[in-house]
Design a protein around this nucleic acid. Sequence first.
DNA 1: GTCTATAGGCTGATAGAC
DNA 2: GTCTATCAGCCTATAGAC
Lengths: 225, 225
Amino acid sequence: MAVRQRDPKSTRSALLDAAADLFAKRGFDGTTIDAIAKQARVNKAMISYHFGGKRGLYGALLSEILTNMAARLEAVRAWDAPPEQRMVAFIAAFREVVRVQPVAPQIMLREVISGGRHVDRKILPNFLAIFTVLQGILEQGTREGKFRPVNPVLTQIGLVGSLMFFFATETFRKRIVREIGVDAGSMDAEDYIRHWRDMMLGGLAVRPVAGFPVPVDSGPSQGDE
Amino acid sequence: MAVRQRDPKSTRSALLDAAADLFAKRGFDGTTIDAIAKQARVNKAMISYHFGGKRGLYGALLSEILTNMAARLEAVRAWDAPPEQRMVAFIAAFREVVRVQPVAPQIMLREVISGGRHVDRKILPNFLAIFTVLQGILEQGTREGKFRPVNPVLTQIGLVGSLMFFFATETFRKRIVREIGVDAGSMDAEDYIRHWRDMMLGGLAVRPVAGFPVPVDSGPSQGDE
DNA sequence: GTCTATAGGCTGATAGAC
DNA sequence: GTCTATCAGCCTATAGAC
């Protein structure tokens, strides 16, 4: 039993790792400091010592995730390139963040659903960066005549939403495949990224496309209620 | 003080309403039965009496939401129409559910992030219906040559994800507008629906479009890490 | 920096009167 | 069906020894 002692640095990071995993799976309120400490193989009093309590630990984790993502996206913002390529780079950057921190989408989604209750004013701009970068790319594309004129805010919300949703729901999708036994075909992350890259570029293409006359709604008859 | 008494039916529905609101905002673990009872103006012992406890109340709510959504989508599934129109109807049906139950996206998203921990086997198929209906529409479109051949599962995940995200994050988006003061332009639900209808139809249009040579990735230089 | 022991508050549930 | 009173369990946090 050689591996018994810890250096202080690893205590901090062990706690952050365990917290990331558990907060992602069960949310802030569903996670106990006991569970975190146990999973980190650390005494639970260490949470207060190093982070000032459960809330402090969560804040440190959230800040780390948002800072990391904002940094990656900043590179895309600063990149001087055609809008199509910058959009592809945006998607790739998002994917890269998830590769490094697989729990990021769950935690960010939970946070955003809760109205950003734990998001400190100081890191709110980092959160916003996720959206403004893409917005700038869309505006560039429209300005340069490469994209049809679209509402950049609505576009941005949808793309970020679909990306977050995919990565945040992996566990549930696996459960469905397991329990229902539907073969869902490929749900590989790289395929998903490529697929939505193409969908976005197609959806943003300057009209008229080969495609559709904008269809009339109506829909199936269904009694109001 | 005439309005003091209740009939039993209204106690049940008052509890369901309060539970919907609070579970949506704060999640299952973040909501106390005290808070629910107080908001419903009902004695908290009634939760055990009518629903067998907190978990039972949540289950009843979740079941109600999923049943409602599955019913609406079933009409779209059964509708015999061209795939473009059926997809538009799918989106409209989703929007209609949200109009009737604005909390549905938050609750469903939370559930799905948690891996479906509270989703009973009995209602799991209802959950799945949300995805299979769209999948059928996409397959129809590809079969009929109206859509380009796409992976229906990936397409479906992205569309449902972007819809859920939009409606589940309204509170947070409003906070950002308020605190940062960015004028986000129109974030109206009907605009969003129309926008993504067009994006989907464009993204699914049979190639080649006017548009892009599929761009090469690369992206901005950024040190690995 | 780490651990043990314990305080003190809150939570979900229910027994029993009406 | 409804309400009051109550309880046992769990949770976060920390004082104090090492």
